[in-house]
Amino acid sequence: MSDNAPATTTALPLLPSPTVQAERLVELGVHEIAGLDAAALRDFARTAEETAGAGALLAVHPDRAPASALAPLLHRDGRAGFVVVDMTDVDLFAPVDAVTDLPDAPLYLVESPDRGDEMANWSPDEALSALTERGRTPLLLTEGIHWVLHQPAALDRNHCFMTIGSRLRRANGSLDARTPAIWISNGTGRDGSERRGAPKVGWCWAGNRHTWLGFGSTAGRL
């Protein structure tokens, strides 16, 4: 595939309603991870359903439900999700400057999440500026995990995605070169054969391209 060549986009069904998503989070115990009462989560979802547009994603703020706690809740083909062994600092990845609309609230909505299949084979550095030009912002890692929790079809072999809204900032203020992504393990190397087919939280270099990774983004957060 040539540089920046578009990938075939696979249409996804709309996400279930916020109230259905809330029940899923309660079933998985995400409210307990976040220190929230199940009733409060359900109340938020009912209110959100009255105002949210179709296809909105219900998410918990990353400060309340970090990626390390959410990743094992992912499942595919009977295998649980995991974080790669060389990403022990996954929870230190924080919103980049381009993410200006993250609500200061434990619960919020992510509008019209998109996997960015057409950006497959772009580098994260290239994709960030393009998303900004389109009036969209990149998904946070935790938002990407929430999306796959509610809609497992969002993660498909050869159609996975990066979540470049989350980056690790070094002590000197510069960004670590790793960019987080969610894809499907092939069960090789340190993943272990027992994890073949499992959802995987890993990372890629900011300047590298991958033909099977798009760039998750949102039209806005409420």
Rank of each mutant, 00 (worst) to 15 (best):
S2H: 15
A5V: 13
P6V: 09
T9V: 15
T9D: 12
T10Q: 11
A11I: 09
A11Q: 10
L14Q: 14
A22V: 04
G29M: 03
E32H: 14
E32K: 14
L36R: 05
L36F: 08
L36V: 03
D37Y: 07
L41F: 07
A45Y: 07
R46I: 05
E50D: 13
T51R: 13
A52Y: 01
A52S: 07
A54K: 04
A59D: 03
R64V: 07
R64F: 15
P66E: 06
A69I: 01
A71Q: 06
L74F: 02
R76P: 05
D77T: 06
D77E: 15
G78W: 02
A80M: 00
A80G: 01
T88Y: 09
D91F: 06
D91S: 07
L92Y: 09
P95Y: 12
P95G: 06
D97S: 13
D97N: 08
V99N: 11
T100S: 15
D101L: 06
D104C: 11
E111R: 14
E111S: 14
E111V: 05
R115N: 08
G116Q: 09
M119E: 11
M119K: 15
W122N: 12
D125I: 09
E126S: 13
E126F: 07
L128E: 14
L128C: 07
L128G: 06
A130L: 09
A130F: 08
T132W: 12
P138R: 10
I145A: 02
I145Q: 00
I145H: 01
Q151Y: 00
P152M: 06
L155V: 00
F161N: 01
M162I: 02
L168A: 05
R169M: 11
A171I: 10
S174G: 05
D176W: 06
A177K: 09
W183L: 10
S185L: 02
G189Q: 04
D191Q: 06
G192Y: 05
G192H: 05
R195S: 02
R196Q: 12
R196K: 14
G202Y: 03
W205E: 10
T211E: 14
W212D: 13
L213V: 02
G216A: 09
L222E: 10
